[in-house]
Amino acid sequence: MSATYGLYVSKQTAIHRLHPLTKLTYVLTCLLIAWIVPGVWAPYIVLLVGIVPVALMAQVFPNVVQNTIKTTIPFAISLFIVQGLFWTGGTIIQQLGPFSLKEEGLLFAIRGTGRIIIAVSGFLLLSYATRSDELMLALSQKGLPSRISYVILSTLQIIPRFQHKANTILDAQRSRGLETEGSFLIRTRALLPLVFPLLLGSIVDIEERAIALEVRAFGRSGPKTSLLVLHDTNRQRLFRRLLILVSLGVIALRIYLWLAPRFAA
């Protein structure tokens, strides 16, 4: 059931079959290039060349687009207003009443929006096409402590139950006469009778869950094995190394560009 896998959208594409680390490295490299390479349009190029084709191949393009637009629009609006209109100094390209639209602010907003789009769409692409338990396993094999992996995965699975619990408490309190609509004071007073039962009830569970973990030898030190098996290929390993080289190259380029004028003087 997709809910337990987080954002994962189950499909049978070549992208889905890739090793989680390949997808992670790829997305991080795209992110790095989009953010570090100078120029207003760099993020958009990375988007078109790097993100869009992969999203299409993974058949998650509509999901990515929809969610990216939803998340990015508030930022875009804020950026264009705050930076476009309130840029200190700079060349005015349009007067709008008491406010003036500055060219530098506009370009900043365009680049800023692009960077956010890359971050969001890259992350979504990764999440839609990768199972979180496989990603955690891949990271564990690279050294991520199994305790962290346990925490992340079990949190993902208990959150829907918690929201259900919260709704149950909300209904129960409402049926006992709790007012949740009305003035600010009324709504604030509703907060404690809703939050408290949720918190106190959960704390009791912590003890039992800890006991269950101990029973299953979770506290044992020593190497752990895994029922789940990830499939990796030499090509992917090579590709990942290539991506890392590209990333290092981009960083080196940026440092060079930053240092060069200082040494020219």
């Binding site: 338990d133 992996s149 346990y150 995965l153 949190t155 569970d205 039992e208 869950r209 973990l213």
Partner: peptide
């Protein structure tokens, strides 16, 4: 419920 680790799908 509390005996399910939650870390496995």
């Amino acid at each position: 419920f509390n005996q399910i680790t939650g870390a496995r799908f």
